[in-house]
Design a protein around this nucleic acid. Structure first.
Lengths: 146, 146
DNA sequence: ATTATTTATTTGATATATCAAACAAATTTG
DNA sequence: CAAATTTGTTTGATATATCAAATAAATAAT
């Protein structure tokens, strides 16, 4: 049930799983949009679905550090996916908007994201997916309250 | 069953899980050994269990790139956890050995690793853990063959 | 044996992770 | 209102991820 190395535990299977999933995501994304990363896509989708959301909320949604979000967004502004202005209602915040390129990219990527999920979860029943989710949330909660 | 954002899928739960787990690992490791990271610990354990293993095998065991392993080892040599020499039987390889500090660290860390796993998996039955592992391996295989 | 190919590792470039410290704007307190 | 605290973001430092290209040694092919 468990291999010789500590890497034989289910926790390393989790790590392996997310790495393999990210690989196919990146591969499929590249086919359609050449200059964007998985994480940048996530930010794009979040912004598209939640206009005006502050960076700190983006960070929470995709489990990232604020510093990481700052840098990801910086690159996306450079590559003309986003524009960033100071939010006049609260000058600490920045107002992030998709550019035309950003919006077109969303259209291109939406089917890719669906495909990625479908590929990864193929052969799993709804019940299994729910169970998987439940077990993982149990682990998350164990870690958080430790 | 699924939230509004794409981050609501089980695949993002997987990502979240591994991040939370790594956090408690790092936190608990820090309590005992101040200057080592989770990944460096993994390399240490692998080397302790598999003397003379080439870097490329370490990479496979912990799902990392060869380039990453090179750099991780470099830092560990600098911090006197490892020594590295050219392997005379095959000069492309390097012979990696734990220093005394490395061996002492293993002793300190072994109980921590057990604790981390126990904490994370607490409340899950063996059957559930096996099922979790099975479902994850299914996803891995889906991704690999896609 | 020389050439071609493969294998193990390294290096460079770029992206992200993490923590701590810095900052400025907003909010709360006394 | 002024001082203290909180909030949103940035910056610096260091570690890791990923891909591609470069090396050098080992092995296979002609």
């Amino acid at each position: 049930m468990q291999k010789k190395t500590p890497t034989g535990t289910v926790l390393y299977t989790i790590e392996q799983t997310i790495k393999e999933y990210r690989k196919i995501c990146q591969k499929n994304i590249q086919k359609v949009v050449g200059d964007i990363t998985v994480d940048q896509c996530l930010v794009l989708i979040i912004l598209n679905d939640n206009a005006g959301i502050p960076q700190i909320e983006i960070a929470k949604l995709i489990f990232k550090d604020n510093a990481s979000i700052t840098r990801i967004i910086e690159l996306m502004v450079q590559k003309d996916y986003l524009t960033r202005e100071v939010d006049e209602s609260d000058k600490r915040k920045s107002k992030l908007l998709l550019t035309e390129k950003g919006q077109k990219t969303i259209v291109l990527l939406t089917p890719i994201f669906k495909l990625n999920r479908k590929t990864a979860l193929s052969g799993l029943t709804l019940d299994e997916i729910e169970l998987l989710d439940k077990l993982l949330h149990k682990i998350i909660s164990n870690c958080k309250t430790s």
